[in-house]
């Protein structure tokens, strides 16, 4: 479908209309923290943020998610599915986060279909917005991404002045544009303006490396002393994994409210926690920070390629920004390129 335009001063009205039919999910500021939240109107939506502290993964893979409700009364097990999810519009996510959803698709849509994830995925229209002001920690272009293209999104908006250029990237996006057609105009030279925006943004990136050679190097670095050195400063908290848009590890727990009724839920878990792999008998295949830190970085930069054929670091820079001890995956990538793998 041909590109469209959307006047900037029309966005709030559009989102208000969206919120009337769909569940609108958009970035808002909770005190100082920008995060995606379900909204009943466009009030409070922030447009000038670079990226949210938490990725939008919560809306496909919630931190805590009911799997089913149960009753065990009268020695009978009754299992009921969770309440259905409404059709949603996820507005304002960045291209790196769109790529992270593609990465998670590979995990949840495999030999076993994860119906919780796939149901939400199917019911979500993703409206991405190109980045014009990358943060010093952003490095999507170093890992194969782009701040101004978002394959996998349904619509991509790019700020080209008074209007957004609207690229329609899927049938879902097309249906959205048709449904709200009164807000969209036809493209008239904005595509050319986007090329200029792209050039300007690219020049703003402080971080520029590439993944070239990194995977090949890591293939032979499992026993490298680098990991022990790196792990010393790690606190073993889950900050990096919880702010990561592709980290998808979870635990499954039962909540029994009265001895008979309750729910089974899954919740984010982190490979950085000691008890994550500790077995009931006490054996732990990843007993120290060294093994856990190594596993996380290999997962992002090597295992994901081996298993899913793509990287699980999208360069959003969240862990770089939020890690309490500045244990930065960008530094790891740079270090891996430098170190002698044969040590």
């Amino acid at each position: 479908m041909a590109n469209k335009t959307l006047k900037k001063d029309q966005v709030v009205s559009l989102l208000n209309k969206v919120a009337a039919t769909y569940q609108l999910i958009a970035p808002v500021a909770d005190d100082s923290v920008v995060m995606f939240k379900p909204l009943s109107s466009a009030e409070g939506v922030v447009f000038d943020y670079v990226n949210s502290v938490l990725p939008p993964k919560d809306y496909f893979f919630p931190q805590t998610e009911q799997m089913f409700k149960f009753s065990t009364r009268n020695n009978q097990i009754v299992i009921n599915p969770p309440d259905p999810v409404k059709e949603r519009v996820l507005f304002g996510i960045r291209p790196c986060d769109v790529q992270s959803i593609i990465a998670m698709d590979k995990v949840f849509d495999r030999e076993y279909k994860d119906t919780y994830y796939l149901d939400k995925r199917a019911k979500t229209t993703i409206i991405a917005v190109s980045c014009t002001e990358p943060l010093p920690t952003c490095f999507c272009t170093s890992v194969g991404g782009s701040p101004t293209s978002a394959p996998g999104a349904d619509l991509l908006l790019t700020d080209v002045g008074d209007v957004y250029l609207v690229e329609v990237l899927s049938e879902k996006g097309e249906a959205f544009v048709q449904k709200f057609s009164e807000f969209f105009g036809n493209e008239n030279g904005e595509g050319a303006k986007k090329a200029e925006v792209e050039k300007a943004v690219a020049a703003k990136f402080v971080r520029t490396t590439s993944l070239e050679g990194v995977k090949a190097k890591l293939d032979n670095m499992f026993e490298h002393p680098y990991w022990e050195r790196l792990a010393r400063k790690c606190l073993g908290c889950a900050c990096c994994t919880y702010v990561c848009p592709t980290c998808h590890c979870f635990d499954i727990c039962d909540f029994n409210s009265n001895g008979f009724e309750g729910e089974r839920f899954r919740c984010w878990d982190s490979c950085m926690f000691a008890d994550y792999t500790r077995m009931a008998g006490g054996h732990n295949p990843r007993p120290t920070k060294k093994e856990r830190v190594r596993n996380r970085f290999l997962h992002k930069l090597k295992y994901s390629w081996d298993r899913y054929g793509l990287g699980h670091c999208v360069g959003c820079g969240r862990c770089s920004r939020e890690c309490p001890v500045n244990l930065d995956i960008y530094t790891v990538i740079s270090d891996v390129k430098e170190v002698d793998a044969n040590v």
Partner: peptide
């Protein structure tokens, strides 16, 4: 309530 609702339970506070 508002503050704790934001908590993601990463335990960074405890670990540092």
């Amino acid at each position: 309530e508002k503050q704790f609702n934001r908590c993601i339970r990463c335990y960074a506070c405890r670990n540092i």
